[in-house]
Write a protein that binds this DNA or RNA. Structure first.
Lengths: 122, 122
DNA sequence: CAAACATATGAATATTTGTTCATACGATAA
DNA sequence: TTATCGTATGAACAAATATTCATATGTTTG
């Protein structure tokens, strides 16, 4: 009887499968939200961007100073700022020739804080 | 006088730079922690792994059932489980031929929750 | 023991991604 | 306006990564 599932043999009963599939169907976010979530965390998944965020934790800083503080090219920083801005992690404010960047909201702080907590476990 | 900074001309005074560099030096985590942080978030930065985690939010599940629930190859799932396990986001428990996977701790839940909150802003 | 099942893993491939280089854009000052 | 400064951006290249395929490992059953 079990072999009639199309070769599927894993686990004891088919009930478990149906139950799981049902629960997954109910609680799994929509395809677009899953994609956006992954996209968001991808932004945090680069040490250069993380370092930029740590600087912006302390002050509102222009591109040039960010580049200097992190010992990186203005272009490299600018490219990363663009990604951070697109994902609404930071925002830019123009003041003459400068553009000063700062955190967009406090989720950035709490997400990174949670990450640090996880890492600092033994 | 400003030109003597080695061509550096940005921003009004050199004080700002020194101040920023000092603050950054004080508050920036160590190189290894920054790398580990980025590495952790990189793990969340893939929709397949996110989907696996959402399944494990609901139940302890074996590899085969995960593959079935997510309509993916056993091999693809296994590769991703390895990454999740290496970063201590999940843990495996052997029971006969099966290996049941579950969340390692609650940081996983809260990190993803924070991510969803950020996304669900207008 | 051999056979079957559940899972893991190495190699190969296609795609994604971060940095560099050159250049363009926008604002200000002369 | 022209020159200069601060920033943005497109193309190119190298490095990282997710999936597939084939195969190996480990466990149970006959």
């Amino acid at each position: 009887m079990h072999e009639k599932m199309g070769g599927v043999e894993c686990c004891e009963t088919t009930e478990v499968h149906e139950n799981l599939l049902h629960i997954v169907e109910e609680t799994m976010p929509e395809e677009t939200e899953l994609y956006d979530l992954a996209e968001l965390f991808k932004v945090f998944g680069d040490s250069t961007r993380i370092r930029i965020l740590f600087v912006l934790f302390e002050a509102e800083v222009c591109v040039f100073d960010l580049a200097e503080a992190l010992h990186m090219t203005q272009s490299a920083i600018s490219h990363q700022l663009r990604i951070l801005k697109q994902n609404r992690l930071i925002k830019g404010r123009r003041e003459g020739k400068h553009i000063f960047y700062s955190l967009a909201d406090d989720h950035v702080r709490s997400i990174i804080a949670q990450g640090r907590e996880h890492i600092e476990e033994d």
